[in-house]
Design a protein around this nucleic acid. Structure first.
Lengths: 150, 150, 150, 150
DNA sequence: TTTT
DNA sequence: TTTT
């Protein structure tokens, strides 16, 4: 039994890539606001890394961008990899089984929600396979179909 | 919206400590088995870090130990702290609102489920405040009541 | 362990009432769309009854109305009561611990989303205690503080 | 977004049937204990109806029985049917995507956990298609593959 | 008695 | 640094 449900906003555009075997995988990060405790306190949030595979990965990259509100239904995954310095890195992230697009209408017709510079939000969707296969802050090496959880 | 539900087994005895203000907090790690994919594959699991505060922290440390099966209802939390080497460490963990003890009967009357040596499972419960306040693999410094999520 | 998370739209305005002791309780029903199975199929939904107590009940009635999108975090509750015909009625509903308002911006500035007539959406919020204490389709009799789940 | 997680005990043996097309479907009811409120109060529980399809339905009927502790991961479903008296009946139940068997070892070697009489727990598993297709307290008529949620 |  |  391992189930996570989150509703939050993407802190950057989803990062879509493809495994050597052509399987789509998108990494994303969402800000999930914590409930307010006290008057006058500023909003706090958890910034949670997520991964999603195959068709939902492409849909996420095609339709959602920085600032988009999404619902995530998935599970908590832990994995380890060796960092550049040879040290073991421990990763805890959410693997999404499905992602719901909230606010889709309001979002579509509007501006780019504060994305800029390094971001590719706006007119052209970021669905092209990346020329470099490293994950931003993730496993830089061996994403193969053997990693697929299904 | 931020909700996590896990059922798994403690990979070690819960680590109960107290903040300077006397608030109980327990760190734990549970192995949550993944569903079997194929015949003949060996069991895989996610090893998820958790924290629980106050009374449920003391209950966990008093009644559960390495190998105990528990259900966790909580939320995903991310936080950062500065490591010994001055680098920022990113932590993703589960903050438990409540913990259910599964298998309590079988566990009570039985042996110590493989705990040994450095473990304090068995006759004496590990509820005494620790003389040193550092977290194993966590924030070594400032645990005060201000950190409390409620 | 009993946890439910829903995201959907109110099918009518929330129905806010007060127990004899002045405790606020709101009944609501939300339509939760099922994922599309096939092209060309029409949208299907589950229509789930919910209850929420105290401050979140008043907030729901004050800020949300028919058509509003909400997230619900709660538990499944079953209860029985005796119907008008003397037969036992079995009720399964969701008791919300917390409700998140989604789409709040788009909703505030806009029209009344199809509410009319018998509905009180619009200018005057429906927070006044009702003169009659019966539940629409629920337990018609004894709502006292003893029923409170906390 | 529609997710339910429950941990509880079967209040009777699962009821396994087959659709005319040979698809397995099991109905079950689990008691989910509520958290204790006060010292001296007696344990309260919610008694929740569930359905599960295909292979997990057969596994549930084969391995679990009245009293077995299970974890359920699924969604809330509402449906209506016409009762014997011609009145519309509203049903709210949990459709399980997956069911985890808790306590499996302790359960296997032990006695029948209080089942008796009308129950078929014990040596022979209740996997045979029933000669009559009515659901105990459910839709008495048309269970066809069209009802399958996947 | 059903929402977009 | 991983549980049954």
């Amino acid at each position: 039994m391992n189930r996570v449900i989150l509703v939050g906003r993407l802190t950057r555009d989803p990062d879509l890539r493809y495994t050597p075997n052509g399987v789509a995988v998108a990494n994303f990060n969402i800000a999930v606001n914590r409930p307010f405790k006290k008057e006058g306190e500023q909003q706090q949030a958890d910034f949670i890394n997520g991964v999603v595979w195959r068709k939902p990965a492409e849909n996420l990259a095609n339709y959602m961008k920085k600032g988009s509100q999404i619902g995530v239904d998935g599970r908590v995954q832990t994995r380890i990899y060796e960092g550049q310095d040879g040290k073991t890195v421990y990763v805890t992230e959410v693997v999404a089984d499905s992602i719901q697009f909230l606010e889709s209408k309001g979002n579509q017709g509007s501006d780019n929600h504060g994305s800029y510079g390094q971001s590719n939000s706006g007119s052209q969707p970021n669905v092209q396979p990346s020329q470099n296969n490293s994950f931003e802050g993730g496993d830089p090496i061996d994403i193969s179909d053997d990693d697929l959880p299904f």
